[in-house]
């Protein structure tokens, strides 16, 4: 307990998520962007003139430009950044993941406290043969998700983790 080393940082978890995740994130960001563009443009050309009797207030055009440009930046930058940051590793005793892109979360949980292991796959994820893995503990603050793993990797991992955790006794609180 007291032999805590003076090491100050955690090294990165070993594995990256599937490279296809970049495309997946880009596509889903693009879909979001399209929806946002549609709303912004409709508002600009249809709603605002109706409210302001045919003319638009001076701030409408700059706002539209911002609303059109920001999603582009998001689509271009976010997927790469996220791919570099997302990492995971499972040892025989613990699971460690890192996720995020602007703000970054590192999560660690001992496997002896894991309660459930789920894998989920959205429709779009299925298209890219990806799957996410979620490990929950008895704490509402504690679920650990590895986004966008290769589907086969996810399946193997679920199997491994279930095996390890089903050996644990108790309710892991």
């Amino acid at each position: 307990m007291t032999q805590a080393t003076d090491s100050v940082l955690l090294r990165d978890p070993l594995h990256q998520v599937s490279p296809r995740a970049v495309t997946y994130w880009r596509v889903s960001a693009l879909i979001g962007a399209l929806v946002e563009w549609a709303i912004a443009i409709a508002f600009y050309f249809l709603v605002l003139p109706a409210i302001f009797d045919g003319s638009r207030p001076w701030w409408a055009t700059p706002l539209l430009v911002v609303l059109l440009v920001v999603p582009v930046a998001h689509v271009l930058v976010m997927p790469q950044l996220r791919f570099h940051i997302h990492r995971w590793e499972v040892t025989s005793t613990a699971i460690h993941t890192r996720s995020g892109w602007l703000s970054i979360d590192s999560r660690v949980a001992p496997l002896s406290r894991v309660q459930t292991v789920d894998s989920t796959q959205g429709a779009l994820m299925r298209l890219f043969r990806l799957a996410s893995l979620t490990v929950t503990t008895a704490s509402a603050a504690g679920p650990i998700t590895i986004d966008c793993l290769d589907r086969e990797v996810a399946q193997r991992l679920v199997h491994e983790l279930t095996e390890i955790t089903s050996a644990s006794e108790g309710d892991a609180t």
């Binding site: 307990m1 007291t2 032999q3 805590a4 080393t5 090491s7 940082l9 955690l10 090294r11 978890p13 590793e89 040892t91 005793t93 613990a94 460690h96 660690v108 949980a109 001992p110």
Partner: peptide, 13 residues
Amino acid sequence: DRSTPGVLTAWLT
């Protein structure tokens, strides 16, 4: 690391 010895060991540098 002090509170839960062993859990982080694999990743300490």
